[in-house]
Simulated assay, not measured.
Amino acid sequence: MRYKKLGNTGLSVSEISFGGVEIGMPYGIGVKDESDMLVEEDAIRLLHRAIDEGINLFDTARHYGESERIMGRAFREKRQQVVLASKCRHLRTSDGTIPTGRALYDFIRRSLDESLVALQTDYLDLYMVHYADAGILENEEVAAVFSKLKVLGLVRAIGVSVYKTEETQRAIATGLWDAIQLPFNLMDQRHGQYFDEAYRQGVGVIIRSVLMRGMLTDRMQQSHPALADVEAHINRYRLLVGKEYPGLSKLATQFALAYDAVSSALIGIDKLQYLKDAVVTVEGNCIGEALFATLQGMAYPNQEFLNLAQWDKNGWL
């Protein structure tokens, strides 16, 4: 396992980070309810194995069901071996507004305190806004509260989780956030246009959706007819898989990590085999310049269509 600096945070993180949503709640393709999930003791063993494999960055959130509590049990005797990243409860109320003044501070502080108790620690290495939309990023009070948590020593770094490219651009431009978690992969490279600026500003980048929920792997599956063009495009990448890159997941992960700004690729892991597969993707030489340039030119033509959350709602996944 290789390690990279997370921007200017002073944190060194593994190139593969453990996505904790799957161990905390039913999530992902083929997971309908708790009967499809790992039992708690097996989840703890998986987290320990991840440490043994060199992973030190573990991502979770208040909204990930039992994920924080399970990580708390797993890491209570191993706190110095892990970099814990979690996210605040969604800031917008049911009517879409953002609390103000003391109400905002109390809400964020209460959410953080819940996370600290669940994770059995007295500080977080990285604390993020869970989906920082444009309105949240323009809200100076939100940034002030998160910055205060750093001053109090409750968190070492603060960040935002975003979806849209304009949110990435805005988060970097504020100069207030230490790290950004964003979607990026072979197919959807839109956020990559801001990587150089993030690197210059010392903003750490953690990417998610690097494997598009398993679509950019060798686990072949029957796609919904609405995704026929997507599947055909993915098969173009398969033609580049060979001796040096024996699997599509390795090609996809190495491509994303070839950007200097990208510190870690977040992989959802709920099976030992998925953990082993994730570790293999970063073994060996880094991707070459020629192949990197080729892949940059192979993004999906209609990247706006690549909305996995919407596909899920449509019943396409």
Rank of each mutant, 00 (worst) to 15 (best):
W177E: 01
K164M: 09
V160Y: 02
A171K: 09
T174I: 04
K148E: 11
S161P: 06
T168H: 02
K148V: 02
L176R: 15
S147W: 03
V162F: 01
S161H: 03
D178I: 03
I172W: 02
K150L: 14
A144P: 05
V160D: 02
V155G: 11
E167M: 03
A179F: 07
A179G: 10
G159K: 04
G153I: 09
L176E: 14
A144T: 13
D178G: 08
V160E: 01
G175C: 08
F146E: 10
A171Q: 06
Y163C: 01
F146A: 11
L149M: 15
T165H: 05
A171F: 05
K150T: 12
V155L: 08
A171I: 01
Y163H: 11
R156T: 04
R156A: 04
T168N: 02
T165N: 09
V151W: 10
Q181V: 12
F146D: 10
R156E: 06
A173C: 02
G153L: 12
E141T: 11
Q169A: 15
T168W: 00
G175P: 07
T168M: 14
R170N: 02
G153Q: 13
T174N: 13
G175W: 05
A171R: 07
L152G: 03
E167P: 05
S161W: 00
T174L: 09
L149V: 07
Y163L: 06
S161L: 01
V145Q: 09
T174S: 15
A143T: 14
Y163I: 03
